[in-house]
Nucleic acid binder design. Structure first.
Lengths: 333, 333
DNA sequence: GCCGACTGCGCCAACGTTTGCACAGCCTGA
DNA sequence: TCAGGCTGTGCAAACGTTGGCGCAGTCGGC
């Protein structure tokens, strides 16, 4: 009466094909020194039983699982979900599964995530959360957005300073002299680089420096917290004439804050953003922003890891360029 | 000279603590019949060595891995990435890791994904891709957006017809009589339900039926393809006065198409959408849409799976309500 | 003072797969 | 005729963990 619910194992296949398990294994693996007749018999048996190799057993024997951990701050954010998707594409093509972990931007979670991944014997890690000096995992790792030092197998990041130069240069080229920076807390390397890049670019373009012109939203990177920060900028006696938002969500919050305060963008205050927002061309006003190639970033990072696993890393530190997309929010004609 | 790179195993811990491996295992598991002294000795040894249990070996022995597969059409889409995040939250709290697979909306990929997950001995599956009749996995599965029949452990879906009633009712209440439907190809159950729900609601509200008033974008569900479909609607001799878009990306494409054609929304043509778009309040015009609770959906689905694994499914088919958020695009005052 | 119960621990098998090694049969060449 | 090589297959160990079972020692009750 009881139906055999157990999934068929290699032993079952071997028994059906009248060979030893080791022979069955070799036959399925296309290894040499197996006669054609046996190979066919085993293949038929496997097909007949609907045999699927047990990856867990394979991993145990191989002492490494076909997994790559991807650690991101928040997969609910469009950029990271695209990053993950891009990475998944190239990883799957090489037989790896992605194990995605969210850190919620908390150091403790990152620590737990890395240890969990180690416990699962992952082959490699893509670490996109990049606190400057978290404990280094004992597993081949590609760092995203953290070129701090020579950690891991390789590092990849956006050209944060090139981006800031593009944004600030564009605004300065249109005569803006009071330019503010609206960013998230600079706990990640990219945040630090963007703020530093902003300052350097401002200096280069002779933009007046003003301590109050750097506003930091809270660690949620949410539009709401950016709106609050923007409101503080608007409350200044001498308000800036332009704002550089270091992320798309922040730019959206800034627009909302301007509307609430009755300031028009770009007529009263110009706005540019580092990240190109989803539906950016359709918001009012369309946002001038830097385009990033989210998927490419993930693909590139994954490829870097795969290369590294094969010992073929050529460039251990890659910078991906960004591109300025001019729309209406900067006040261009 | 050679550094011991091998990660410490339970055997190492046992050796250091001068006990048998089985004793070490029990000591770490807080199982009874272990003296307090031994427990402490083992714990100290484990800590000293930085021992991390090998999950692969545990899984092999347990014949099931602490993984839950999550199969989605496209994690690059905001809704699914949030769904995944919500699910991950509750799964991790119960010690499961999420194994996310993209199907790219292709049946073949779904098949491969399911077999891969089985190979990895996952404990359960959240299937959010829901073709009406794909092969059923042999693993406890919660279906999202597919209440077709009594498959799997449980099913969860949005209240698609309630949503359509809200949208069509709202438009009809404002006097619209020529209402068009702009959807993606109805290959998934939710797409079919929305189209059917639209038709039923239109009938109920006495909206004139017109074959040309149903336009289907291509399977990419992209804004661009929606724009093309919208352009076809605008080219009609008697254009509709209102459009119901069955997804946020489609609504965005529709707005873009209207702009390109010089039609104003909502003055010339009203627009409502099933999904609340990211940054929806900021697009021009702000879109009247249904809000879904993306994260909650994922959380709920995961909880349903966990309950099912414990044999405590109360309601095998859950419908999550949606909520109408009225903004400007529908032409309300 | 003896028997039974209980406590604390070790032995061993098992999970499913892979692979080094051994071995049997056959063929070739001297 | 026999050594040596080649071909095809099987045996067994190993990966790290767990849990059933058994065993030695102690303790308590009669």
């Amino acid at each position: 009466m009881s139906v055999e619910q157990r999934r068929p194992t290699l032993i079952d296949v071997a028994r059906l094909a009248q060979v030893a398990p080791s022979t069955a294994s070799r036959a399925l693996k296309e290894s040499p020194r197996i006669s054609e007749a046996t190979r066919l018999r085993v293949a038929a048996a496997a097909r007949g039983l609907g045999y699927q190799p047990n990856r867990v057993a394979q991993s145990l024997r191989a002492k490494t699982a076909p997994f790559v951990g991807i650690v991101v701050p928040d997969i609910g954010v469009t950029f990271y979900s695209r990053f993950v998707k891009g990475a998944q594409e190239v990883l799957q093509a090489s037989g790896y599964q992605a194990l995605v972990m969210n850190t919620e931007r908390e150091a403790g979670h990152e620590e737990v995530a890395l240890r969990t991944l180690e416990g699962h014997q992952v082959t490699g890690i893509l670490l996109a959360t990049s606190r400057p000096k978290s404990a280094e995992p004992h597993i081949p790792t590609v760092y995203f957005d953290s070129l701090a030092d020579g950690r891991g197998l390789a590092q990849i990041a956006l050209a944060n300073d090139q981006g800031m130069e593009l944004l600030v240069g564009h605004l300065a080229g249109h005569g803006h002299e009071r330019i503010a920076y609206l960013g998230g807390p600079p706990i990640f390397t990219s945040g630090q680089e963007r703020l530093a890049g902003f300052r350097a670019a401002a200096e280069r373009h002779g933009v007046r420096r003003h301590a109050a012109y750097v506003e930091i939203a809270d660690s949620s990177w949410s539009s709401d917290s950016a709106a609050a920060a923007m409101a503080r900028l608007l409350a200044l006696a001498e308000t800036p004439t332009a704002v550089v938002a270091s992320a798309d969500t922040l730019a959206m919050g800034a627009i909302a804050a301007c509307r609430a305060a009755g300031r028009r963008v770009p007529e009263d205050i110009a706005l540019v953003a580092f990240d190109d927002p989803v539906f950016g061309p359709l918001v009012d006003p369309p946002v001038t922003a830097l385009r990033r190639g989210d998927y490419e970033l993930g693909r590139e990072a994954a490829q870097l890891l795969l290369d590294g696993l094969n010992g073929e890393i050529m460039t251990p530190a890659v910078r991906l360029p960004v591109e300025l997309v001019v729309r209406r929010s900067c006040g261009c004609p």
